[in-house]
Design a protein around this nucleic acid. Structure first.
Lengths: 365, 365
DNA sequence: AGCGTCCTTGCAAACGACTGCATGCTCGGG
DNA sequence: CCCGAGCATGCAGTCGTTTGCAAGGACGCT
């Protein structure tokens, strides 16, 4: 075996091409500035800069700039065991709920020099565990978690050990961690109020999976709201997942009995599924049944009919989560906080007064 | 100042709690297995395993498993100057085109043990540069770039220096890098053929920005297709961006003259903008004007009317890009390749035969 | 029986930055 | 004029792995 340069990098003898100049190291800067690497390090480092004579600082920084020096985050991480990187775990980036959140996180973190490692868990325990472990191994300084499963032992342990962690759009009662979420309860409350105002009395709820915190929270809010209006709060069916298919199935099950005049769907995807179910049953929205979604996904205003939905400030959710984490990382805040962001009911074409023909005993007019 | 443990990690005196066991290091494994760290390293490392006696390998691996040892990627990176990490640059994760691509990339890379660093550039040169630099500093092994701007000097230099890089959904002629893209030309060709078959002759193109490669490619394809049918190929207006607003503006400009019976939009967002413009002008789609989009975004089948569009296999685009990059990183392939993935025209309600009233001289029937 | 050759393993030097400690210098006060 | 304090800087070890080199042992062959 003859010695070979590593393949793939267009390696050439130094004579022929201006061979790729290796990135300058701290030592290069130091030498060129006529100081010891330690001094250069201190001069370049915000926190230790005060230990170095201003003139020296200036000289070092000049040289560094001239050489285009950038610290090697890897070497730094090895020594400091921090990485200026945070891990973001989402179930599925393809779900329109998450991109704005992730975007908000990235924007907010980038301002502080952090970068983001993302992974999709599909809410699958195995994937969650392995992704989480991989991120921990890469020394991420903290986590932002939008995944449902907090039962993951790895994650649970980590949280209890005090690994910085913020939950987005998911709450937990078992664990003492910061979380930021939309004010789902108020959203549901307004939704119910809106429907009641339109004249609905038979209102059903197609709930998201109850093992997911949003599913449980919204169901509870639905019950509370219905009770406060003195209405039956037990017309509820749980969807198996937050998906169109699950929404369709759930509503079909519900329509089997005597049908409600309005449906509060656990989220927009479920609402879309409800559209399908209604279409299959020959019912019309909103003439026969009104439907309200949750999240106000992009383009949902262009559906037929445009969906009334609760707008969740997803981007801000991400930004706020990032802030919480940054506070935690900087040591400013240590006690977990829960932040609820306000929501807004956006009324569109999918909600209308109930059909009066519903009570055939009365006059049809 | 009394010495203080670093804040925020629930630090306690070693006696009171089972203090957080630091992750075992290679040295721990070695000691416990009664070998030198170097041997342990070789035993644990796929590529060097053959240098170690099988019995020793087994012993080391057992101990490693028992201790729950995982290599420290940071230390490894420092030594090998590779990071098992790739950088992904997208303009905006919030644009529904990109999540599936990113997801495909992540899934394909995860299988090979790579993790993904993502950043949004907004197609802004400054953001692009700084993100790119930050990723390079973090020793990413390669890049997958979905951003329009290849003029970025940093990126351009990097590409020429042979930094592994794959373009997604963007092509370039100035640079010799691998790229994977949808077969846009064929998509447009099929679109035009479909419209012609329906009876359309006056077909216009609302093109995406021409400085973006997809904009240019699709325009060229449109011209070619029209010519091949012997039709006028100059009814074209360029949108300033791939956005609904730009699509609306562009079409309004176009409708000023005598109007076409069908519109080929540069992508779905532009098509949505066209919907708006038609609505404002009191025209109906598809009765007065047919519209075709590009990309087949999620939920676009639920619009009013459901949009005929060219389906692009976005997820596969991401997977393929990841594969190309992996090939490159493993040194198997060094010559750049361009991969075009097949597309499919999905016909829905936004396309119909042209209104016959258009030629008032003829019979109205 | 001796010697050469693998094969297996150990040694130690990196990779690049950070940091506790030591050192040398300057300056001021008595 | 001397000494101590304090500031600025240098020294060297360290983080956890990888890897070229060398050494030791076992084995086969003559």
């Amino acid at each position: 075996m003859t010695a070979r340069p590593p393949a793939g990098y267009g390696y050439v003898s130094a004579a022929s091409l201006p061979s790729v100049a290796p990135r300058p190291t701290l030592r290069d800067v130091a030498t060129q500035a006529g100081v010891h690497p330690a001094t250069a390090s201190r001069a370049l480092n915000e926190a230790t800069r005060s230990l170095v004579r201003p003139a020296t600082v200036a000289r070092v920084r000049e040289v560094a700039a001239a050489l285009g020096y950038q610290v090697n985050p890897i070497a730094r991480s090895l020594k400091t065991s921090r990485s200026e990187t945070v891990g973001v775990l989402v179930p599925d980036l393809t779900n329109p709920l998450f991109p704005p959140i992730v975007r908000g996180i990235e924007d907010a973190l980038a301002d502080s020099g952090y970068t983001v490692l993302t992974a999709n868990t599909d809410n699958d325990p195995a994937r969650t565990s392995s992704n989480f472990a991989a991120m921990q191994a890469r020394q991420v300084d903290g986590f932002i978690v939008a995944t449902a499963l907090l039962d993951d032992p790895l994650m649970h342990d980590a949280a209890e050990r005090g690994v910085p962690m913020v939950l987005v759009n998911r709450l937990t009662e078992h664990l003492d961690v910061s979380a930021v979420s939309a004010d789902d309860a108020t959203g549901i409350e307004r939704t119910v109020a809106h429907l009641v105002e339109l004249g609905h009395r038979d209102i059903a709820h197609v709930a998201g999976p109850l093992r997911v915190s949003t599913g449980a929270v919204r169901l509870r809010a639905f019950r509370a709201a219905m009770q406060s209006h003195g209405l039956r709060d037990d017309r509820v069916v749980e969807a198996e997942a937050y998906s169109e298919a699950a929404g369709r199935t759930a509503l079909l099950r519900l329509l089997d009995g005597n049908r409600p005049t309005a449906i509060v769907a656990g989220n927009d995807l479920l609402a879309l599924g409800c559209y399908d179910a209604l279409a299959e049953t020959g019912l019309s929205c909103p003439d026969d049944v009104s439907i309200v979604g949750f999240n106000d996904m992009p383009f949902i205003n262009r559906l037929q009919p445009p969906l009334t939905s609760v707008r969740v400030p997803q981007y801000d959710l991400g930004v706020e989560a990032a802030r919480l984490l940054l506070d935690r990382l900087s040591g400013r805040t240590v006690t977990p906080r829960v932040v609820l962001l306000p929501v807004r009911l956006v009324v569109r074409g999918s909600t209308a007064p109930p059909p009066t023909v519903k009570r055939p005993a009365r006059a049809a007019g």
